[in-house]
């Protein structure tokens, strides 16, 4: 066996290994999808059934008992709205820190990041009470604001890193050309960091779509997101695996399609800074 053959074999083994790992990761989603087309009896049968006559009765039941599209709309509004609000605050903040740093900038970034380390349940009471006082319980507005705030630190840090890749001379040139700070951001920084901003926004949307803690605790019927819909199926009615699978599939499907369509941008967002 020549060195080249050995290398080829190594690569093939690595590829097979990668497929196995990918398959392991994907299996629960696959099984979820499969179970959603089973009857409740088939779902709990032992040994598990891989081949069966698929049924849509679970989906029909969900559509009958709940208003799927209202929950889906709520998810869309809160994840996109929360991301938009966060971006609106994060872009100027990251701009300021990237291009006019002070000796405290690093510390401020670290402090922001540290807020992500706080367990969310620690501030549940005050936030619940604030929402109650302002009549924001079970409103999309409450979720949009909270979603924006919980993602703000991570968005600022990612954008800060993207912005720092822009050569400062380009901004100085725009200043010499008489651009106002607003024009500098909108006409120079944003177009140059567009890829980074888009992937950061996508990442944020995915994270918010899947956010469970606040949507379950602060909403019930009016502003409930798909995540809270899934939750409502799991607890009070006992474990109906097939129905739970169907509702979970419905909750995951939109964001998976969205993620698949935007995967190029997402990968760049997730691996930012890893390769220059």
């Amino acid at each position: 066996m020549t060195d080249r053959d050995k290398q080829k074999l190594k690569n093939q083994v690595a590829i097979i290994g990668a497929w196995i790992v990918a398959g392991l990761f994907f299996f629960p989603i696959f099984w979820l999808f499969l179970t959603s087309f089973k009857t409740e009896l088939q779902a709990i049968s032992d040994p598990p059934k891989l081949f069966f006559v698929p049924t849509l009765e679970n989906y029909a039941l969900i559509e009958e008992r709940t208003d799927y599209f209202r929950f889906a709309w709520s998810s869309i509004v809160t994840s996109f709205g929360g991301t938009a609000l966060a971006m609106f605050i994060a872009i100027p903040a990251a701009y300021a820190m990237a291009f006019n740093p002070t000796r405290w900038t690093k510390d401020i970034l670290l402090w922001m990041l540290s807020t992500k380390m706080l367990p969310a349940v620690g501030v549940l009471m005050p936030i619940y009470l604030i929402c109650q006082k302002f009549g924001l319980l079970d409103t999309k507005l409450a979720l949009v604001i909270i979603f924006a705030l919980i993602n703000l630190p991570i968005i600022i840090i990612i954008l800060f890193n993207y912005f720092r890749e822009i050569p400062v001379e380009i901004l100085e040139a725009s200043r010499m050309d008489g651009a106002s700070t607003f024009n500098e951001i909108t006409q120079v920084v944003l177009p140059l960091a567009w890829g980074g901003i888009a992937s950061t926004a996508l990442l944020s949307i995915v994270l918010l779509w899947n956010e469970a803690f606040w949507s379950i605790n602060l909403t019930s019927s009016d502003a409930g997101t798909l995540v809270s819909l899934v939750a409502s199926f799991s607890s009070p009615e006992g474990l109906f695996w097939a129905k739970l699978s169907a509702v979970s599939t419905l909750a995951c499907a939109p964001i998976m399609v969205f993620g698949w369509l935007t995967q190029k941008q997402l990968v760049r967002g997730l691996t930012f800074g890893a390769v220059k």
Binding site: P167, E169, I170, E172, A173, S174, V188, L192
Partner: peptide
């Protein structure tokens, strides 16, 4: 500028 600093 030394690096030209054109708007890419």
């Amino acid at each position: 500028f030394q690096t030209y600093a054109l708007y890419p």
